[in-house]
Design a protein around this nucleic acid. Sequence first.
DNA 1: CTTAGGG
DNA 2: CCCTAAG
Length: 491
Amino acid sequence: MDPEEHLQKCSNMKCQRVQVDGSFVPAIQDESMEVAHLLAEPRSDHVSVDGILYFHEENVGKCCDIKNLSRGFEFGLRTSIGGSGSYTTLNGKDDSKLEVLDELLKDVENDGLNVTDEFSCEDYLLDFEFADKGAGLCGEPLLQSSSSESHSPGLSGSSNGVGGVSESSKVAVELSEYKNDFLDNRVTHDLHGAFRNVSCQTSIEDGICNSLDVKHLNELDNDLPLADSVLSCKKEKGSAEECDTAIVREKRCRKPTLRYIEEFSSLRSKEKVLSSATKNKPSSLASHHKLRHVRFRALRNIPGKNSDGQMSDVVLPELQVHKQCLKNEELEYDEESNASESEDECATPKRYRKDDRRKHQRMWTLCEVIKLVDGISEYGVGRWTDIKRVLFSSSSYRTPIDLRDKWRNLLRASSAQKFNNREIEQKQQQHALRSLPSTVLHRVHELAKIHPYPRERYSKESFASQVGSSILPTRTKGGPSKSNVRRKKCT
DNA sequence: CTTAGGG
DNA sequence: CCCTAAG
């Protein structure tokens, strides 16, 4: 499709939804402009994927015009995938997965949204991942991925000079990963978002696109069919333009970063399911709407922060503190918290208070773990930046350090499992591995053998060889040293 | 700037 | 997840 067309539609859609409250226009305009920028001037190697994402979003939007939300959801994805000209072999799977998701959500709704926190997200996630693996997405992408998918333009240049991997397969891998991330995000975000939203309404605050989803939720509240809502939005387009021009000068001064774009895109996908899931709970939504309005305005008026008012759609309480204390570093944080909160509040609801160091905690999905393990097996332990760049370039919230930390934890988990005849290990194991399928576990094990992580190694084998003199983090196992392994891998 | 290690 | 030291 023509990028210009997308741009037009995107911006239109946004404007349509925003005009209810003029104060939202600037922020929205940012977003639309960002989308426009993205569509019009693709320059990063994520463009193809991003394009797909936005394409998809838009399709969903269009579908909503004529069909109900869930159908639109599914249809939108299908069209977007099909239209992109790739992943044709995955369509069936994707559809089925989405149908599963759809069913799941319906069930939840029918159950009066009485689902426990943990729920069976994990199970669905697992199935999901396994399906992916079967499709060659997660499993051994570099080895199995077919080169037929390498259609994307300008992506081939992004290789990091990895030896032994052809360009085309590299591209395919990246695409696959993106695809994975995309779906992965959908599932995790949607499920988590939906259910969390059911249990604790406050979580609605985590939206970036508050104006968008507020509007949507509002309309869903009133039991308006989505088609109607969209149409009504169009009717009001005229007034939207007025507001638009009126507040036009409040436009952003800072261009959102890629991270923001990404989070935004994933959030918008969440928004849809979220809105459908909250359809049954109209009561507190209205108050939320108002609350968000108030906070939004309050934040926008904070002195010294107006230069990037567009970021103010984040309304975390602690953000207000940060806004005064912190500087531009905060911008990054804002963006992250937008989306990460969704999982944050799910995982650690009460951490948000004073000096919580863990500002945002994002659950590691199985797919991410698999990707990490893949990356480690490719690049070796210690090449966190490379792994991040290649395998996690689409998920900006994972820093190389995060990868390392996760790997550390994985090792601990696997070692704990090894020694599960021990006392506390049992407990630890259950917790750490509760969602770790045997495949991943096995791979972690293998990697743990060749890539011993000194610290963990030490603690694990402290029983057998606790020689007081050996302070060195050497592995007592006669295995290859880390550097050796790494060298072996690279050459 | 990246990684390792500790909190 | 965060912070800091070291290369």
